Amino acid sequence: MATGNQARKSLFSILLRVALLLLVAGALIAFFFGEAIAGYSDVGTGYAARQACGCVYIAGQDIDSCYADLTPDMWPIWLSQDADAQSVSASIPLIASEEATYREGYGCVLEPYSR
C-alpha cells in the first residue's frame, strides 16, 4: 500500500512527464510550422489593426465592438487603442504585433507605411 509521500512522488512524476511531453510537442510544432505560424500571424494582426482602426476612427465605434468585424478564427488577437496617436494595435502575444494609424485623407494605414 502506498504512503502519502509515495503518492505525492508518483503524482509529481506524472505531472513532470506530462509537462516534458507538452514542451517537446511545442518545440516540434514550432520547428516544423514556425514560419507559417509567423506569416499568418503577421497578416492576421495587420488585417485586424487596419479593420479596427477604420471601425474606431472612421465608423466611430467603440474598440470592443470592433471584434465583431473579425472572423471567429482570429480569437487570439488582442486589440488596443491609442486615442492620442489615433492608432490601433493588434497583437498575438509573443508572436506578432501590428499598428494602424488614422491619417486624414488616407484613412487607416499600417504603421510602416504611415511615415
Rank of each mutant, 00 (worst) to 15 (best):
M1E: 12
M1L: 15
M1T: 15
A2Y: 15
G4Y: 13
Q6E: 15
A7L: 15
R8P: 05
R8E: 07
K9L: 15
S10A: 15
S10C: 12
L11Q: 14
F12H: 10
I14E: 13
I14P: 06
I14D: 06
I14W: 12
L15A: 15
L16M: 12
L16V: 07
R17K: 13
R17G: 15
R17D: 13
V18F: 10
L20P: 03
L20D: 03
L21C: 12
L21T: 15
L22F: 14
L22D: 10
L23I: 12
L23S: 15
V24E: 06
V24L: 13
V24I: 11
A25V: 14
A27N: 03
A27D: 06
A27Y: 01
L28M: 14
L28E: 09
I29S: 09
I29G: 07
A30L: 12
F33S: 13
F33I: 10
G34T: 04
G34Y: 06
A36H: 13
G39L: 08
G39M: 13
G39F: 11
Y40W: 13
S41N: 12
D42G: 09
D42T: 13
D42S: 11
V43G: 13
V43W: 14
G44C: 08
T45P: 03
T45F: 04
G46M: 09
Y47E: 09
Y47W: 13
A48Q: 05
A49W: 03
A49H: 02
A49Y: 04
R50K: 11
R50P: 01
Q51D: 05
Q51V: 14
Q51H: 07
A52G: 06
A52M: 07
G54S: 08
C55N: 05
I58H: 07
A59M: 07
A59L: 01
Q61S: 07
Q61K: 08
I63L: 08
I63K: 01
I63N: 00
D64C: 00
D64P: 00
S65R: 06
C66H: 00
C66Q: 01
A68N: 08
L70T: 12
L70S: 05
T71Q: 13
P72S: 09
P72M: 00
P72R: 04
D73L: 09
D73E: 08
M74T: 02
W75L: 03
P76Y: 05
I77S: 04
I77H: 01
L79F: 04
S80P: 05
S80L: 00
Q81L: 05
Q81T: 08
Q81V: 13
Q81F: 02
A83S: 10
D84A: 09
A85C: 02
S87C: 02
S87M: 02
S87L: 03
S87N: 05
V88L: 03
V88N: 05
V88P: 02
S89C: 04
S89W: 03
A90Y: 02
S91A: 11
L94F: 06
I95C: 06
I95P: 04
A96M: 01
S97Y: 05
S97K: 10
S97F: 07
S97N: 12
S97G: 10
A100R: 03
T101I: 10
T101L: 07
Y102N: 02
Y102F: 09
Y102K: 07
Y102L: 00
R103F: 00
R103W: 08
E104C: 00
G105N: 01
Y106I: 08
G107L: 05
G107M: 06
C108M: 04
V109S: 07
E111Y: 11
Y113W: 11
Y113I: 04
R115G: 12
R115H: 11
